[in-house]
């Protein structure tokens, strides 16, 4: 069983994953196996202990029920279409136990799987 790890600190919201997935699954407008959500931009007025600017603005891909973790591609040795196309280089595919060792305690991560 494989999963997708997202270092969403760096997701740029470019939506390439959505469209690559739509192409792979043959879905039409408004549908994909993965959809980007947006949080922000937020300006923090209180001191939240950031070294840099007091803002946040992140994107996070969410799997829909259409996602099959690119079973066929994976069997062929290819990357899932969303991971391959991810312009931000912030998605990883593999065994969840191995993937979570990347979590660094500094940036924000999420494990997507089923």
């Amino acid at each position: 069983m494989n999963s997708i790890l997202v270092n969403y600190e760096y997701c740029t919201g470019c939506r390439s994953c959505e469209l690559a997935c739509r192409n792979e699954l043959g879905l039409t407008a408004g549908q994909s196996g993965i959809v980007i959500t947006e949080v922000g931009p937020i300006e923090f007025n209180a001191d939240i202990g950031l070294a840099g600017e007091p803002y946040d603005w992140v994107y996070m891909p969410v799997l829909t029920r259409a996602c099959n973790l690119c079973e066929t591609r994976s069997q062929q040795g290819k990357l899932p279409s969303c991971v391959q196309s991810c312009q931000a280089w912030c998605m990883y595919f593999g065994e969840p136990q191995k993937l979570v060792t990347k979590i660094d305690g500094k940036t924000r991560w999420a494990l997507l799987g089923k």
């Binding site: 470019c14 690559a20 391959q84 196309s85």
Partner: peptide, 10 residues
């Protein structure tokens, strides 16, 4: 490196 924008994907 395999990364592609939505314009090319479409």
């Amino acid at each position: 490196s395999g990364k592609l924008c939505v314009r090319c994907l479409a």
